[in-house]
Amino acid sequence: MKRAMLILSAMAVLALGQPVLAIPSLQTFIPSATWDAGTQTWVTNAGTFELWVIAANTDAKPIFDLTLVGALDQNQAPVASALSIDGADIDAFTYGTPPSWGDNAGDYPPHGIYPTNYFELSVAALVDDAPETVHNMQPGEYDDTAPGKIFKFEITTTYDWLHFDSYGFLREQDGLFKFSPNSHDAEKRTPPPPSVPEPGTMLLFGSALALVGVVRKFQK
């Protein structure tokens, strides 16, 4: 009996020592992007790219009303035909914080983005199947896997800055629905052009160069 207890204790210790693999219920990801660890965001500067919404554990915990959100810079007004998804122009924007309806209206964490002009695109009313093995796309966490589903979109945009989030709703054991935003988001950023000195600065710089030339001439 004592030996059996020791074996069970050893097994428990080994089990506790095993890493617990976790993967977010929702991730927004750009395959060609780089990871910005400071903002937990996948970033690209391309005008055309593929965007993924990754849903995990959907066989055990279905996601309801899965939605993609795109947000403009707070100083950017919507521009007609500046964004298309799978070939369809996205011109209808709402100012504020998503979601734009229901008891959870405006519940999305601001995270330096909202309130601003944003659009919502319905991805799926219900995701309750898991035909794929999905990964935690955060660097260093890729070995964390779960059954799930990936939704892919072709994005074409002329906006310099465009932020993507996703959200859905999970049904809790008490039957109530819990608002569930994504853990990792994605963004299109165009690097700012090199700064050009103001004309006055250029004039002063030119005068300084001329003065240096005169001094060198008299030093010879």
Rank of each mutant, 00 (worst) to 15 (best):
K2C: 13
R3K: 12
M5F: 13
L8H: 10
A10Y: 13
L14V: 13
G17K: 06
Q18V: 11
P19S: 08
L21P: 09
I23M: 02
S25C: 10
T28F: 05
P31D: 03
P31Q: 06
T34C: 07
T34A: 04
T34N: 06
D36F: 02
A37E: 12
G38P: 07
G38D: 15
G38C: 06
T44D: 06
N45C: 04
A46G: 09
G47S: 11
G47Y: 05
G47R: 13
T48G: 08
T48D: 12
F49H: 09
L51D: 04
W52M: 11
V53D: 01
A56K: 04
A56T: 03
T58S: 04
A60G: 09
P62Y: 14
P62D: 03
I63L: 15
F64H: 10
T67V: 02
D73G: 05
D73N: 13
Q74S: 15
N75F: 02
N75G: 12
A77E: 12
V79C: 08
A82R: 07
L83E: 04
L83M: 02
S84W: 04
I85W: 03
D86N: 09
D86T: 08
A88I: 13
I90M: 06
I90A: 10
A92H: 04
A92L: 12
A92I: 13
Y95E: 14
Y95H: 10
G96A: 00
T97I: 00
P99N: 03
P99S: 03
S100M: 02
A105S: 10
P110N: 14
Y114H: 02
P115W: 01
P115L: 04
E120L: 06
E120T: 07
L121Y: 07
L126G: 08
D129V: 00
A130E: 08
T133L: 01
P139V: 05
P139Y: 05
G140K: 01
G140A: 01
G140S: 03
Y142I: 15
D143L: 14
T145I: 14
A146Y: 09
A146G: 08
I150E: 06
K152Q: 12
K152W: 01
E154L: 09
I155H: 00
I155F: 00
T157P: 00
T158N: 00
T158I: 00
H163W: 05
G168S: 04
L170M: 09
E172Y: 13
Q173S: 15
D174W: 08
G175R: 05
G175H: 00
F179D: 03
S180N: 14
N182E: 10
S183M: 09
S183P: 07
A186K: 00
E187S: 11
E187M: 11
R189I: 08
R189E: 12
T190N: 08
P193W: 13
P194S: 00
V196D: 02
P197S: 08
E198H: 09
T201V: 14
L204T: 10
F205D: 11
S207D: 03
S207V: 14
A210K: 01
L211K: 02
L211D: 01
R216N: 01
R216F: 14
K217N: 12
F218Q: 09
